[in-house]
Simulated assay, not measured.
Amino acid sequence: MSAINDWIDNEVKSNDVVLFMKGTPSFPQCGFSGQVVQILDYLGVEYKGVNVLASDDLRQGIKTYSQWPTIPQLYVKGEFVGGCDILREMFQAGELKSYFEERGFALEAVPAAG
């Protein structure tokens, strides 16, 4: 394993939700990353954004790590969920909210029980 692969693996496993994206959550630098940020913010999901533009090693490394050719990439509890198209489809179908809830996330849009 390369150093970048180890670093990515650590980020994926030590954060509940990680979005590898172009830019940052407050300043996305591509439309696809921006769409995913909007979806996650709308759902009230807390996540860590990792800017792949910060390093060529990281930008190539995440594609190798996931065997997925495009960015953004969303990981939830160590599992690769998908890129922009998959997340948008899941969101529009109402599946993304369920996906997070099934994994124990209390979404801000949903009142807490009790």
Rank of each mutant, 00 (worst) to 15 (best):
I86G: 01
V45G: 03
L96N: 11
T64V: 14
Q92T: 12
A93L: 11
I86A: 00
E95Q: 07
N51E: 08
G83W: 06
Y75Q: 03
F100H: 02
E89H: 00
T70E: 10
L74R: 07
F80L: 14
L74Q: 06
D41P: 05
E46H: 11
S55P: 06
Y47K: 08
I71L: 01
V50P: 06
A93I: 11
S98I: 09
R59L: 13
E102H: 10
I62S: 10
S66Q: 10
V50D: 05
R103Y: 09
E79A: 08
G44Y: 09
V76D: 01
Q67P: 01
S66W: 09
L58W: 14
E95F: 07
S55D: 14
G49S: 10
G61P: 15
I62A: 00
L107Q: 04
G82D: 00
Y65H: 15
D57H: 07
E79S: 10
L40Q: 08
Y42N: 08
G49N: 03
P72K: 06
S98F: 06
Y42K: 14
A93W: 02
Q73E: 09
A106E: 13
L43V: 09
A109Q: 14
G78W: 03
S66V: 05
S66A: 09
A106G: 15
F105Q: 07
G49W: 13
E79D: 02
T70M: 04
Q73S: 12
D85P: 15
E46S: 15
K97R: 02
L96S: 05
V50H: 04
K77G: 02
E101S: 15
G49R: 03
V81H: 10
G104M: 12
K63W: 03
P69T: 13
D57G: 09
V52K: 00
L40D: 06
G104V: 11
L43E: 13
L40K: 06
V76W: 13
K77T: 12
R103W: 02
F80H: 14
L43Q: 00
E95Y: 13
L96I: 01
V45T: 02
V45C: 05
F80S: 09
L58I: 03
E79W: 02
E79I: 06
E89N: 04
L96Y: 11
T70P: 00
D57Q: 15
K97G: 01
V81P: 15
V76T: 08
V81F: 08
G94S: 03
N51W: 10
F105C: 07
G94K: 07
I71A: 10
I62P: 02
Y42M: 15
G49T: 03
K48V: 11
Y75I: 13
K63M: 04
F100D: 04
L107D: 04
T64E: 15
G104E: 15
P72L: 04
G61I: 05
Q67R: 14
A109D: 14
D41F: 02
S66R: 05
E89L: 00
S66E: 07
K97I: 10
L74T: 06
